[in-house]
Design a protein around this nucleic acid. Structure first.
Length: 787
DNA sequence: AAGGGGACTTGGCGTCATGTAC
DNA sequence: GTACATGACGCCAAGTCCCCTT
């Protein structure tokens, strides 16, 4: 079942077409769920026209832009542009003066103490946006990356404090600023840590660790890695210091399993199960409505694991003879009951839970309170991989404290293990990494699961910003990179030619790099470097048809016209191979990235996705936004641009369950309106002739009004119907397109913020609360910012 | 130079919360 | 106030890319 993906060949001028990936008619179909996923239809003529037009005009703009970038000051090759270079320096300097200290000891002591006690720090300070402490009055002027101190009283006083370390007196800035450059390197890390720890040692809350730990387990202690961190490697990115002090309370665990005692039927007879067996049976039973439930592989893997729990001699010998209905019904009932009688109870328990979670939700990183992303360890369950995952249905066992490695400041108190009698696997103090806790994935023990700070943290914000700065840097190199690969399309060296063509595809189609994968352990998906011969079809004279499963088993289906040398090269790469052979047999993502790194330091394949997404948004917005118009019209322009980006990146979603019903509803309403219009028009005619209006369909008498009044009514109705039709069209357009992913990961938020400022659109119309928090660093961008 | 492991970003989906129409 | 639609967000899977080892 393959959807139509025949695209109109697009004639594009190579020289001009350097700003945007080739996006042609693309069928958006998920392979794994084709039954209800219809092709994403861009075939509406108007749609095609827009796309065509937009590409042409973007291409034109790109030329202009190519020039405008020249007026940027030239930069050193160092990473130093990542700090607000785009904003007027004068405006920044003042803000930066308000830097974060690292010597406000009294304050820190207080903070850690309160934190350990689980008291809510917010209570000390007016709360903004629920969690982060922002000073309303002054913060607007502050350095965008800066977070406010978790404790308020001294924040202002220490704002210009300097630190004297290693004989050097310098303003101490947040780690976000320091770890970008190598300033830290002048001061031995050990020295810095020492200096910090000496202050922390006095922290009243830093109780003796032994006491803390032994409170739950008297003799055994977790392995505590006392070494500051792995031996720091010179010039190694990974060895860069990510924090100086780190305090947190560890992680929480899901509650133990509560047996419900409902019995499944085996060959019609109830069967007793132990709590362990019942727990896993319940996981399976409640999945009845999911697609997985009937997949043979899912059932096979489940049965394998469940059977281990049942034991070979158990009365249950065959999964197909089991009837899980009683448990399923018990589950439904439980779910249904909740909203009715337990509204209040539910609320209460929720609040209670939140309060308990509060303690674990925050970390203090270099004296700043930051939200943690996922402090709850994953509950046990049945593994649900994406696509045809070989491990689907396997039982994912419960995670215990002895699976968990904590990473925490050397001088922070070691969090108490929340489960009495158990202990952490290990406690590390590695400040070259950002994770707070880690465990091995039970499904794939080689894999690790991490607890990180939330996206709203300055740590994450900082790396986010760096990512976009790197993508912006690509602007300055893209021309020569394109020249290079174009030249190499004809290289006699096959490797070189493959690198050139692969780079071209990554640039033009925003493909992912495509790392090698373990065939037995993972679903069979590919990226650029791992494309198979039969994923690309050559269509004479110079079109390529791509059809493969990408990340998350999302199907990528696209037919594009390419330059003749690329067409020829692909033909050569395919020649003499079988369908399942690698198209690019000479290269892999490492080689490709090594090559890219030579063209621009730090350049990797994924930067092209960021670059293409952001530049497309920027250009489309600038081109399409008209002066005037209300906010909702502006938003429509934005959403269209967003959609364009999502299509470039192939961000799809399943058609919403109720989509059909909703469209039908809208259609019915439109029909109704049209029917009403007919009647209105009749009445208008009658009114003009001086006749009384006809009776309404409900038999009621209709008020006699003037022809002008009828006309007004008709105009109103028509508008309403047109709006509904537009809504329906939008709904249909977007039914398989996921806008969120590109907004969260690919489009430089400064483009959006600047656009909002220029067009007087409130930022909350474009970014949810969470996104605004994630993008704090982008909020004070100048209105004239261009990507 | 190749492979493995570690750390971090990206991604779709389900569920819960909130908004809106009636 | 209720029912439904929509949007937000948490969850956790699945990528990318880097460093280290062999």
């Amino acid at each position: 079942m393959r959807s139509e993906a025949v695209s109109k060949p697009m004639m594009h001028n190579n020289d001009d077409d350097d700003s945007k990936p080739l996006v042609f008619k693309k069928s958006f179909v998920k392979d794994r769920d084709q039954s209800h996923r219809k092709p994403f239809d861009m075939s509406g003529d108007s749609e095609d026209d827009t796309t065509l037009r937009s590409i042409i005009s973007i291409a034109t703009e790109q030329k202009i832009n190519g020039n405008t970038t020249l007026d940027k000051p030239s930069r050193t090759s160092r990473d130093d542009e990542s700090d607000d270079v785009e904003a007027p320096i004068s405006s920044r300097l003042q803000k930066k003066k308000h830097v974060r200290e690292s010597s406000g000891n009294d304050e820190k002591k207080l903070l850690v103490k309160k934190f350990q006690n689980g008291s809510k720090l917010e209570s000390e300070k007016p709360k903004v946006s629920g969690k982060r402490l922002l000073e309303k009055d002054s913060s607007a002027d502050q350095f965008s990356m800066k977070k406010h101190k978790a404790s308020s009283s001294t924040a202002k006083q220490d704002s210009t404090k300097t630190e004297n370390l290693g004989g050097k007196s310098k303003a101490v800035v947040s780690p976000n600023e320091t770890d970008d450059d190598d300033d830290d390197d002048d001061v031995p890390i050990a020295k810095r840590i020492k200096s910090d720890s000496s202050s922390n040692n006095k922290t009243p809350s830093a109780k003796p660790k032994e006491t803390k730990q032994s409170s739950t387990s008297s003799t055994r202690k977790p392995k505590v890695t006392r070494a500051a961190s792995p031996p720091p490697k010179k010039n190694s990115k990974r060895s860069k210091k990510k924090w100086t002090t780190l305090v947190h309370n560890g992680v929480t665990f899901p509650p133990p399993y509560q047996p419900h005692g409902t019995k499944i039927l085996y060959k019609g007879k109830p069967v007793n199960l132990s709590p362990d067996q019942e727990e896993v049976a319940t996981m399976f039973a409640v999945m009845r409505e999911r697609e997985y439930y009937n997949k043979p592989l899912f059932r096979k893997n489940f049965w394998n694991d469940w059977r281990k729990l049942l034991g070979k001699k158990h009365v249950i010998q065959k999964l197909d003879d089991c009837d899980f209905t009683p448990i399923y019904e018990w589950h439904l009932e439980k779910k249904q009951c909740l909203p009715f009688d337990n509204v209040q109870k539910n609320k209460d328990s929720k609040e209670k839970k939140q309060e308990q979670g509060e303690k674990y939700m925050w970390a203090i990183v270099d004296g700043v309170k930051e939200k943690i992303g996922n402090f709850k360890v994953e509950p046990p369950g049945l593994f649900a991989g994406r696509g045809e995952h070989p491990k689907m249905g396997k039982f994912k066992r419960r995670i215990h404290p002895h699976d968990i490695t904590l990473n925490i400041g050397k001088d922070a108190p070691i969090p108490e293990c929340p489960i009495p009698g158990e202990r952490w696997k290990e406690v590390k103090h590695d400040n070259t990494v950002t994770w707070l806790a880690m465990w091995n994935d039970p499904i794939n023990p080689k894999d690790c699961k991490y607890v990180f700070l939330s996206p709203s943290s300055s740590q994450k914000g900082h790396s986010d910003k760096k990512k976009y700065e790197k993508a912006r840097k690509l602007k300055d190199h893209i021309e020569s990179i394109r020249e290079t690969y174009t030249k190499n399309f004809n290289s006699k060296d096959v490797s070189k030619r493959q690198i050139a063509v692969a780079t071209y595809l990554i640039d033009k189609l925003a493909l992912r790099a495509g790392n090698g994968k373990d065939e037995d352990e993972e679903a069979d998906t590919v990226g650029c470097c791992t494309l198979k011969v039969d994923n690309v079809e050559c269509i004479h004279p110079n079109q390529l048809k791509f059809d493969f499963l990408g990340k998350d088993s999302i199907r990528y289906e696209n037919t594009v016209e390419v330059e003749p040398p690329v067409y020829k090269a692909i033909g050569q790469f395919k020649a003499g191979k079988s369908n399942s052979d690698d198209l690019f047999d000479e290269i892999d993502s490492r080689k490709l990235n090594a090559h890219l790194n030579e063209l621009m330091p730090g350049l990797t394949a994924k930067v092209f996705r960021t670059y293409n997404a952001s530049i497309t948004l920027d250009k489309t917005l600038c081109r399409e936004t008209k002066d005037g118009g209300d906010v909702s019209q502006k938003k429509l322009v934005y959403d269209q641009a967003n959609k364009e980006v999502a299509i470039i990146c192939n961000h799809q979603r399943a058609v919403p369950k109720s989509h059909g019903a909703q469209v039908k509803k809208l259609k019915d309403k439109i029909d109704e309106l049209k029917e009403g219009l007919k009647q209105l028009k009749t009445n208008l005619k009658r009114a003009k002739k001086g006749e009384a209006p006809l009776e309404g369909s409900d038999g009621k008498k209709t008020r006699n009004i003037s022809p002008e009044a009828w006309e007004k009514k008709i105009a109103q109705q028509t508008m309403k119907a047109e709006k509904m039709e537009r809504d329906m069209q939008t709904k249909e357009d977007l039914k398989t397109v996921a806008l969120g992913t590109s907004k969260i990961n690919y489009m430089d938020p400064r483009i959006t913020v600047a656009w909002c400022k220029r067009n007087e659109v409130p930022i909350e119309k474009m970014f949810t609360k969470t996104l605004q928090e994630k993008f704090t660093w982008a909020m004070d961008v100048e209105p004239d910012f261009r990507f």
